Amino acid sequence: MTLHGEWTSKKGPSRAENRDAGGLLQNNQMTLAVVVDASERGPHGAMFGRLWIKNLFIRATDFVEPNATALVQAMEHAHAMLRSAYPSEVAAYSALLLRHDLGTGWALGCGDCRVGKADSADSIDWLTPVHTVANMTGAPFTAEHAGMPERHTLTRSLKAKRFVSPDVTVVDLSSNQQWVLSTDGYWIEHLMTGTPRDELSDDASCLYLTATADHSCADTDCDNWQLISN
């Protein structure tokens, strides 16, 4: 089954640049979708996120047996290629790897980007946990956590010092084939708190995967989308 991606991404008015990035890689074996949200801490966050996805996709095209273990290893390799050039950058990310031939897949998350299964635009079952100080005890992330200043501090992230493995959740492909990958600016500030998109302060990005569209498309204010299909 071929899934098409609809990428939407907008810089927050309080931000100097849009530091979100997204990508979709598809071949005969798999669908791999990735979203990255680089923090304001380092000077080159936008480039860091885009290059990490690029390096990850280069590695992923050589997968002999696409699975969560191979993907995490590829993530670590992509991280190693960038750590010396971008020592100050920090990012959150989420990824979705689907094996349509096996009827299974894996949702991966590190930080406050998320993967969800969508019944509609207003009904999303978020599959990956959130790693912030606000819910550091492991509790499910709620609207109460969204209002805490501590939710902006990540307890797990992609950074130069060392590679931290993401949480991995096995997903079932037997029913719904609509998926969402989102940065916190979109799923927290827009969807959870109800802030209109044109009033969001943070960068807000969302990658929607569906089998009903006839092609992939991007609506973004910068060059932060990568699409590889073969």
Rank of each mutant, 00 (worst) to 15 (best):
H190E: 03
G185W: 00
R197I: 13
T183C: 14
S201I: 15
T183L: 08
A213F: 07
L181G: 01
T212S: 15
H190V: 08
G185Q: 00
M192C: 08
D198F: 08
H215Y: 14
H215V: 08
R197L: 14
E199M: 12
Y186V: 07
D184P: 05
S216P: 04
D219P: 10
D203L: 03
W179V: 06
H190Q: 08
L200T: 01
D219V: 14
A213P: 05
T183N: 11
W187G: 05
Y186D: 10
L191Q: 15
R197T: 14
T183G: 13
L191A: 13
P196F: 01
P196R: 01
S205K: 00
P196C: 01
A218H: 05
L200V: 06
D202N: 10
L207R: 03
I188H: 02
W179I: 06
M192R: 08
W179K: 06
D203G: 09
H215Q: 14
W187T: 05
I188S: 00
P196G: 02
I188T: 04
T195E: 05
H215M: 11
G185H: 00
Q178N: 14
A211Y: 12
G194T: 05
Q177I: 05
S205F: 03
D214W: 10
A213Q: 09
P196E: 02
G194F: 11
D198E: 10
A204T: 03
G194Y: 13
T193H: 11
E189F: 03
T212Y: 12
V180C: 15
Y208M: 13
M192V: 06
G194L: 09
D214K: 13
E199G: 06
A213V: 02
S205A: 13
D219E: 15
T212W: 11
D202W: 04
V180H: 05
A213H: 07
L181H: 03
E189H: 03
C217M: 14
D202M: 09
L181A: 03
T195G: 07
L181V: 03
Q177A: 10
Y208S: 11
S216M: 03
L200C: 08
C206D: 00
A218M: 10
Y186E: 09
M192D: 01
S216A: 07
L200D: 03
